[in-house]
Design a protein around this nucleic acid. Structure first.
Lengths: 148, 148
DNA sequence: TGCAAAATCACCCAAAAGGGTGACGACAAC
DNA sequence: GTTGTCGTCACCCTTTTGGGTGATTTTGCA
């Protein structure tokens, strides 16, 4: 996003030069004020549109939607299943955080450990679950009742 | 969407008249070319930004509010939610396959399309869901009742 | 029947994820 | 005390993902 502002400033600088040139070229010597005005109007309109488009990259409208959710048991992780697979508590923790859609970096920050640590944990976790990807690990963990 | 362009043109026409007026009012009699140019530049930049803002469709960001409901139903994907987010059927299909833990390559093979196609589908899907990762997309899709 | 949306694919680049290996301290069990 | 598990971290290398851009074809609907 900072790049855009920079580019905008640069283009602005170039424009000043161009406009200064056109000023003496068309205005002073031929006095064609209409061309000058049109030029400025056109370029700035285009520039404005572009800026506006760039600026609205993150414009979102919040829509609150009520969603029915199955009420009932608050879910308890299957401890015996966890033990059976030889998954350590820490690995379970990582699995839960993976399931919420966090990246390794974010998990590392949340648990105050290094990203490498998270990676070894998840690596061993995937191995124990027989998963090749984190999405698969989540899927398996879900069917195994390790996570809700 | 076309209305905006029309309005833009109309305003442009009005502006030309106004500018013509200011030209004789301020420019010819006082020769303040800088003010004239600045005026045009400013107005058109603002106009352009406004147009750009109008042109970009507002993106909807779902905020799910969970409401407890008697559990038991075999799950039906929330069509209104899908439409509301502007997610296409094909993208839904990809979301479902992602949720099962498949890689892009595997999804591509299953749907008989190229991996690139799957990537663009998932890319747009993540954009619409406001997800940065596939695991997050799955999580969001789940809470939005798009997938079981 | 013509336009807009959807679906398809390619290419490049950067970031994230995953695999493999090795290492070190803490702690419990034996 | 030795052994084993657990949690921690590093480094390297490959694969996977994701972002961005651009283009073409299909198709559904006005």
């Amino acid at each position: 996003m900072k790049r855009h502002v920079l580019i905008y400033g640069l283009i602005g600088g170039v424009l000043i030069v161009v406009l200064k040139w056109t000023e003496y070229r068309f205005l002073v010597f031929e006095h064609s004020i209409e061309i000058y005005g049109g030029l400025i109007a056109g370029t700035f309109a285009v520039l404005g549109i572009w800026l506006g488009l760039k600026l609205t990259g993150t414009r979102e409208r919040i829509v609150v939607k009520e969603v029915p959710v199955p009420a009932g048991e608050p879910f308890v992780p299957d401890e015996s299943m966890r033990e059976g697979l030889g998954i350590t508590p820490r690995e379970m923790e990582i699995l839960g955080l993976i399931a919420t859609g966090l990246s390794n970096r974010e998990i590392a920050d949340r648990l105050f450990v290094s990203e490498n640590t998270v990676k070894t944990h998840s690596s061993r976790l995937f191995d124990k679950l027989g998963a090749k990807r984190r999405t698969q690990a989540v899927q398996i963990g879900k069917t195994a009742r390790l996570i809700p």
